[in-house]
Design a protein around this nucleic acid. Structure first.
Lengths: 218, 218
DNA sequence: GGACAGTGTTACCAGTCTGTAACTTCACTT
DNA sequence: AAGTGAAGTTACAGACTGGTAACACTGTCC
């Protein structure tokens, strides 16, 4: 019902033909080279995002990473294991935003809240595929799956951090503001997938700003 | 990676053993009986919801509907075709709310907006599986899929109706209010799937009320 | 009684999937 | 130069998938 055909996501550091040549060995020591495991994870993340977890096979992932299935299974116990690893990588990427925001002494809490909005509005435009974590849960539909734990932990931590920010910004009912903003963001991501760029998510920034204003101290 | 095993969703009108007996023919004329096509659609809707579109096979759907694969393929050209039909059924169920709301002369626009919130908060608690339409888009991840059109059309019509209601209620910037409420609802549904009942979706009603209040005419 | 449409049954095709086994080749270290 | 461990290659097992073909059965209507 959905033939998956073309998958070339990993930009080869060395072309396939010269991989076993001396040149390849040199390149493998240069800074541009990436270990098979990392290549697999980043390719898997991209292919899962593009075709869905069930929509792409391990063979295709290995091929895209310019390696093979056996190597993949030497690095990961199972496809589920690989999936969890890719999700953890996605969460780590998001954590960078928070640490950078924490270290920024120039902005006060209110300005940081605006940065949060900016960051996510920008990401919505750049990556219209929605939240990988939420997508995984929707696709798997199984609470017992190990990926579910990864997602739940991450989402909770994100909400807690946002709530702390709202508190610092002196919002009335900061927890409710954090919840509301979380829902707006999550909704915008899925809405963008379902109805495209011209749907309700188009004015996410204005929605967030109106919400923040409504919770401003009087 | 995810063995699908038990699927008994369609409450049997007649037990399998007596289906070809005279009793079965009598029962097939009673009001309790349902035509195979309808049984297939409702079973498919439930199983798609429970296991995902790719997580359940046509054979299992046919079995749950107490029929077989051949009959399924006589009624539907393909699994995709069946999927579209189930999604259309889901949209029709939601349309009932709007027609009832339109016909209600007791409530003014503001009260109807509250009804909208009530309706969806209630549905969120009753059906924690999220929006079937949005889930389908997330799972398929293919704009060319016929289901995408069904979803997009429905989501747009929902938003338009909500915007009309916000206009009637005299909201400042009714379109933005409709967008914001749409995002809140959509976000709550996916958030509930990803983080459970105690996540940010728990206070959806309060989030909506705060938002509506923020757009109230001064 | 007989045609007929709807349904059930069985078997099958061709493709895909995850995961494993056995073996070869390579690069690097000592 | 030898050895070691990581990676590539090939083949395969076992299960499942969507979809089709051919045929048997059943109740209904003329």
């Amino acid at each position: 019902m959905l033939p998956v055909c073309n998958f070339t996501c990993y930009r080869p550091v060395t072309p396939m033909s010269s991989r076993n040549s001396p040149t390849a060995s040199v390149e493998s020591k240069q800074e541009g080279s990436v270990a098979p495991r990392e290549r697999i994870v980043s390719c898997a993340a991209e292919l899962f995002r593009k075709f869905g977890i069930r929509g792409i096979g391990v063979d295709a992932i290995a091929e895209a990473a310019h390696t093979n299935k056996m190597t993949l299974y030497r690095k990961f116990r199972s496809k589920d294991d690989l999936l969890c690893e890719t999700l953890r990588q996605v969460t780590q990427r998001a954590m960078v935003f928070w640490t950078e925001l924490d270290q920024d002494d120039q902005k006060d809490a209110a300005a940081k809240l605006n940065s949060w909005v900016d960051f996510h509005v920008q990401r919505l435009e750049q990556e219209p595929g929605g939240c990988d974590l939420a997508n995984a849960v929707v696709e798997l539909r199984d609470i017992a799956h190990p990926a579910y734990g990864v997602v739940q932990e991450f989402k909770t931590s994100q909400r807690d951090r946002l709530a702390a920010l709202c508190t610092a910004a002196g919002a009335t009912d900061p927890n409710l503001l954090a919840d509301t903003l979380s829902l707006l963001l999550e909704g915008a991501r899925v809405n963008r997938q379902a109805t495209g760029a011209d749907g309700s998510s188009r004015r996410l920034r204005e929605s967030c700003n109106a919400t923040i204003k409504a919770f401003a101290p009087s």
